[in-house]
Amino acid sequence: MDFDGEMLERELRELETRAQQVREELAALVVEAKSKDGLIQLTVGSQGRLHALTFDPRVKRLSVEELAERVVGMMNDALDLLQHETAAKTSAMFPDFTADPPFGGPLQ
């Protein structure tokens, strides 16, 4: 079997280009979560950072404990969705890529 350095170099450049595309897409990834009753909405960015949290004025009806519990639950749901989206984008660009969650593994 002959070693084809040019072909290997081409494949490496293509891989580098795909990797850069994935990095850009993941950096721009944003997920939103909204409560079923529409009282709470939040937006989470690609690094799991909370970008926005808004409350409908009717949220005053909730106890402080219930409000905190719902925000935590929504944040966890948004992070799960973010993890799923990250894995989906990664596997779409690199179908042979296998890693443990949160960066790979089977999508649920």
Results as ranks from 00 to 15, higher is better:
M1T: 02
D2R: 06
F3Y: 08
D4Y: 12
E6Y: 11
M7P: 05
L8M: 09
L8K: 10
R10Q: 12
L12D: 01
R13A: 04
L15F: 10
T17K: 08
T17N: 10
Q20R: 08
E24V: 07
E25S: 00
E25W: 05
L26F: 09
A27M: 07
A27I: 04
A27S: 03
A28H: 00
A28W: 01
A28F: 02
V31W: 06
K34I: 09
K34T: 14
S35D: 04
L39G: 00
L42R: 03
L42H: 02
Q47K: 15
G48M: 12
R49Q: 15
R49H: 14
L50M: 13
L50I: 14
H51W: 13
H51M: 09
A52F: 11
L53W: 12
T54F: 06
P57Q: 06
P57C: 05
R58I: 00
V59A: 05
K60H: 04
K60P: 07
S63A: 05
S63D: 07
E66L: 15
E66S: 11
E66H: 10
L67M: 14
L67W: 14
L67T: 14
E69K: 03
E69A: 14
R70K: 13
R70P: 10
R70V: 15
G73H: 06
G73F: 14
D77E: 11
D77Y: 11
A78E: 02
L79H: 07
L79F: 14
L79K: 15
L81F: 03
L82T: 02
H84Q: 11
E85R: 15
E85M: 13
E85F: 03
T86A: 02
T86H: 13
A87T: 12
A87M: 15
A88R: 14
K89W: 02
T90F: 06
T90M: 14
S91I: 07
A92Y: 08
A92G: 04
M93W: 13
F94M: 01
F94A: 01
F97I: 00
T98H: 14
D100H: 04
D100M: 05
P101W: 10
P102K: 00
G105S: 01
G105C: 05
P106E: 13
L107C: 08
Q108T: 06
